[in-house]
Write a protein that binds this DNA or RNA. Structure first.
Lengths: 134, 134
DNA sequence: TTAGGTGCAAACAATTTGCCGTGTT
DNA sequence: AACACGGCAAATTGTTTGCACCTAA
């Protein structure tokens, strides 16, 4: 009752992602596939990208919405997968990493962001107390 | 002619950001300030957050839109500030970083993302040829 | 006075969802 | 035949913008 079936569109979308290194947006995938699949719809692209990501077959990169930080010196963050909260970490910012990558690639590196993720302290507590009360 | 003036709202928004470590969204800032500033508008919050960010007084965190990657083993990325393109980097993923942060903080760390940014090779080329032709 | 700032609402952009017909099993 | 899937369009959500009025300098 909860099984997945074969779906031409899904495999198409997956293949597209496997064959590129462009880290496309949903819109890009849609535009690429549209010419050969005229009645593909953008909604389907979104649905399948989300599905594939939730299965771990592909990866999604981004915060769902923008966040702002009053602390402008570079520092690392932790983002909770459960509640979405973002915390500062006091891990030292490694400027030498920037130089390293700048030297190793053909890009001009200005800086980097290091974002850890997982389950935050608060959500762990909450989970514990939920288990207790059930 | 291009000078900024004092603006109560802007300073309010800035202060709010300086006094929290919650990395709020625009909406959160708006909700926090609304009770004491009933006729503050969400548009103003967005405008000022963007302005403050462009001046470097605050930092913005996020990709403008979601991007998808067919490569699911953890690796680093480079994002071009100019054209928005995202490239893979073959910098080794440091799993020990996760353990380190897991031990040092009260959060349960599942992984991290390391995203460099700057000007990509292609955009550097483009800039060069623009200068030549002008 | 004058240019920048604000509120408000409309416009835009990105993403999700409901409905209903279609395709896979 | 059952039910997951896809197309389409409407609905949501996040963000920007135009315009008339307001306010600091």
């Amino acid at each position: 009752m909860n099984g997945k079936r074969y779906s031409r569109q899904r495999e198409l979308i997956y293949q597209t992602l496997m064959e590129t290194s462009e880290h496309p947006t949903a819109e890009m995938v849609y535009q690429w596939l549209k010419p050969t699949n005229p009645n593909l719809s953008l909604g389907t692209v979104y649905r399948n990208l989300n599905l594939l990501a939730s299965e771990g077959r592909i990866t999604r990169m981004a915060f769902p919405v923008e966040r702002y930080d009053g602390n402008t010196d570079p520092h690392c963050h932790f983002r909770c997968d459960v509640c979405g909260a973002v915390y500062d970490l006091d891990l030292p910012y490694c400027r030498d990493l920037d130089e390293k990558v700048d030297g190793a690639s053909r890009h001009k590196v200005e800086g980097h962001e290091l974002i850890f993720h997982g389950q935050c302290a608060r959500c762990q507590e909450e989970e514990k107390s939920l288990k207790k009360s059930s």
